[in-house]
Computed example of a mutant assay.
Amino acid sequence: MMQLFTAILLFNDALAYIFRGCVGSLGYYMVRISNFMVFILSDVIMFFFHVYVCSYLFEDGEWKNTTKYL
């Protein structure tokens, strides 16, 4: 999932770069939408990375056992 969202993020970043100098309503909206998508997708990628790291560190039920030592 992280790779898919990273590809979408890079595609939207490229669209924002392509339409950066275009005058008119199409360029205006494409840059705004693309920059918003880059903003949102960076958080989505960080979420999936967090899930990946947690699934790597805490395997089946190990998370429940660590709370009693805290």
Rank of each mutant, 00 (worst) to 15 (best):
F19P: 00
V23W: 06
F39N: 04
M2K: 15
N12I: 03
F47H: 09
I45M: 02
V44S: 01
D60Q: 13
A7W: 05
S25C: 09
V44H: 04
F58A: 06
N12M: 04
D43H: 10
S25T: 14
T6Y: 14
L4Y: 13
S34A: 14
G61E: 07
D13Y: 03
I45H: 01
G21V: 04
L9W: 02
M37V: 12
I8Q: 07
T6D: 15
G24R: 01
V51A: 11
A7S: 15
E62A: 09
G21Q: 07
Y56D: 12
A16T: 03
K68A: 04
M30E: 15
N12K: 01
T66K: 07
N65Y: 07
S42W: 06
C22T: 11
Y52K: 07
F36V: 06
M1N: 14
Y69K: 12
F48I: 14
Y29S: 08
H50W: 08
N65T: 07
A7Y: 10
V44F: 02
F11S: 12
I8R: 02
F48Q: 11
N35R: 15
S34E: 07
L9E: 04
M2H: 15
F11N: 03
M30F: 02
S42H: 09
D13P: 00
K68Y: 06
L26W: 09
V53C: 06
M2Y: 12
Y69A: 04
Y56G: 07
G21I: 02
Q3E: 15
I33D: 13
I33C: 08
S55R: 13
S55W: 07
F11T: 10
S25R: 14
L9K: 15
D60Y: 09
H50P: 01
G24W: 11
L4I: 15
A16S: 14
Y28G: 03
K64M: 07
I8H: 05
V44W: 00
N65W: 07
S55L: 11
T6I: 15
S25H: 15
F49M: 04
R20A: 13
L41Y: 10
L9T: 01
H50S: 13
L4A: 13
L9D: 03
M37K: 09
G27F: 05
M37Y: 09
E62R: 08
V51H: 02
N35E: 14
S34V: 04
L70P: 02
D43Y: 11
L41Q: 13
L15F: 01
L9Y: 08
D60L: 09
L15G: 03
V51M: 12
D43E: 11
C54E: 13
F58I: 05
D13H: 12
L15R: 03
C22P: 00
L10N: 15
S42E: 11
H50N: 10
D43M: 08
N35F: 00
S55M: 10
Y52M: 13
V31T: 14
G24L: 11
A14I: 06
L26Q: 10
L9Q: 05
R20T: 00
L9F: 04
L15D: 06
F58C: 07
N35Y: 01
E59P: 06
